[in-house]
């Protein structure tokens, strides 16, 4: 699976989920419609999006997705066409949400992230765990060996549902 597209660069650390999608938009009972409010809580966010229409790869700073557990942050990114986020580090809950929503969370060293801010087009090979910026040499990164399958084929809930008999047996023997 290749995830590729133009780059939206927001080289800031600590972009929290309130900035990604403010609480005032968390009023739906499904995941729909979040994309139109992406980065509405970030100073200058809507302007950045307007200047980079159609971007599919977000390159950003440390600790992306910190704060609230709201999966709406992943839904907003996905809903706006962001298929991968490249950062030096992610907050735990966002990282888990990225995998279950098939957003590729690419962790790279800070210097690499800084260099990628200037890339125009990035292509990510999910199986091979490599990325190429503007046709350059491949850069290796690592994905979670289990959760990678949720990017490639979805199915987080089906995976767990299949484990229910084993879980019930474990609980009975507890």
């Amino acid at each position: 699976m290749i995830v590729a597209g133009s780059v939206l660069a927001i080289p800031r650390a600590n972009i929290d989920t309130d900035q990604i999608i403010p609480a005032r938009f968390l009023t739906r009972i499904d995941a729909a419609g979040m994309g139109e409010h992406l980065f509405d809580g970030m100073p200058g966010g809507p302007e950045l999006l307007a200047a980079n229409p159609g971007a599919a790869i977000l390159v950003t700073g440390e600790n992306f997705g910190c704060g609230s557990s709201r999966e709406h942050a992943a839904w907003a990114l996905k809903g706006r066409g962001i298929e991968a986020v490249i950062a030096p580090s992610f907050a735990r809950i966002f990282l888990e949400n990225a995998y279950t929503n098939a957003i590729v969370p690419v962790v790279v060293p800070p210097a690499t992230a800084e260099a990628l801010v200037h890339a125009r087009h990035i292509a990510i090979d999910v199986e091979q765990e490599t990325l190429r910026a503007d046709g350059g040499d491949p850069i290796a990164f690592e994905l979670d060996a289990l959760r990678k399958r949720f990017i490639l084929g979805g199915g987080y809930l089906a995976y767990l549902a299949a484990k229910v008999p084993a879980i019930r047996a474990w609980e009975a023997a507890r």
């Binding site: 557990s69 999966e71 992943a74 888990e96 987080y156 767990l160 229910v164 609980e171």
Partner: peptide, 20 residues
């Protein structure tokens, strides 16, 4: 611990979380 909606849904469905 706090988790996302999908993980919470998985816990409601299967009684478990997948965690590092």
């Amino acid at each position: 611990l706090g988790i996302g909606t999908t993980a919470q849904t998985g816990a409601m469905l299967a009684g478990c979380l997948i965690l590092q």
